[in-house]
């Protein structure tokens, strides 16, 4: 009788640990800043990007990829690297400078350019405003902003080719029409321009511009122009949207400002393919625990 107790305890432990399967989402560094605390003054700067790319865990690069925010600056007619007009440094940093930093990272002589090894993910966000007063793009500015994104893509693809890296580049904007404009741009190379590169389009889960025909591209890989991924936040809205899209088998991306219990719950419940977080180190340790 005495010997059955340890066996029972072991059986319970085995059962509990067997249920504790950590999700394995790809971890993307939010606003190019996962080396320091979330702070719009520090987010989307070349300094924070440099520090974030150097983060390691167990001898490997912590992140799977990085998010770079770009703003089209009407006043200077230039493509900036930054989170919003209230937090632009002087001299301003450009989207191309950010892309070149990531390109240099891809060229490093290492087997682990990302946690996964040879594959790196870059998410380029196209901010919808072009002034501090939140004015939207004109048609000319929209084309220029998209051209800037393609310039960044060219730099990243060249580095990936030089170092034989696999590269996935994703585009997102709060303005879904800005994202939909990418495949209509003359420089659109297609979603699979070569063997090692993949391009994907992202919309926010609550975007009102999404329509029924987007369901095909959200749930399969065979629509060349459609939205591929939906991003969602866990605590801003009731959870019907993420429940719906998870049930529809859409590809999901969880984003957050701070790690919370809701973030971990959402990872376990909705199994997002990507997690955008400023706390990459924390999530990597949690995933690998």
């Amino acid at each position: 009788m005495q010997r059955t107790k340890p066996i029972l305890v072991l059986a319970v432990c085995a059962t509990v640990s067997a249920c504790d399967e950590r999700p394995q989402s790809l971890i993307i560094c939010h606003n190019a800043n996962c080396a320091h605390e979330t702070n719009p003054f520090a987010d989307d700067t070349l300094a924070s990007l440099t520090d974030s790319l150097e983060l390691t865990y167990l001898g490997r690069t912590t992140m799977d990829g990085v998010e770079l925010d770009t703003i089209w600056d009407r006043q200077g007619a230039r493509c900036l690297f930054g989170h919003d007009f209230a937090h632009i440094f002087d001299p301003a940093e450009t989207g191309m400078q950010a892309a070149e930093l990531v390109a240099a990272h891809l060229r490093k002589p290492t087997d682990f350019v990302s946690w996964g090894g040879n594959r790196f993910f870059v998410k380029i966000e196209l901010k919808r405003e072009v002034t501090a007063l939140n004015d939207p793009h004109t048609e000319e500015e929209r084309l220029a902003h998209l051209a800037c994104a393609y310039d960044m893509v060219d730099v990243l693809r060249a580095a990936a080719a030089d170092a034989s890296r696999e590269l996935e580049i994703m585009f997102e904007s709060e303005d879904v029409e800005l994202v939909r404009g990418l495949p209509r741009h003359p420089r659109w190379p297609g979603k699979d321009p070569d063997d090692r590169t993949r391009l994907r389009l992202i919309a926010q889960v609550q975007s009102t511009e999404l329509v029924l025909t987007d369901l095909t591209s959200l749930t399969t890989n065979d629509d060349d122009d459609g939205i591929d991924i939906l991003s969602f936040h866990t605590s801003r809205l009731p959870d019907g949207l993420q429940q719906s899209f998870y049930a529809l088998d859409a590809s999901l991306m969880l984003w957050m400002l701070d790690a919370s219990l809701e973030s971990l719950y959402a990872m376990g419940t909705y199994h997002p393919e990507y997690v955008i977080t400023g706390e990459a180190q924390l999530f990597r340790r949690w995933e690998e625990f």
Binding site: Q206, T208, L210, V211, L212, D214, L215, G240, L241, Q243, S244, F245, L248
Partner: peptide, 10 residues
């Protein structure tokens, strides 16, 4: 729930 321009009923 507003899904893809339609209403999805749970």
């Amino acid at each position: 729930v507003p899904v893809l321009g339609e209403r999805y009923y749970h």
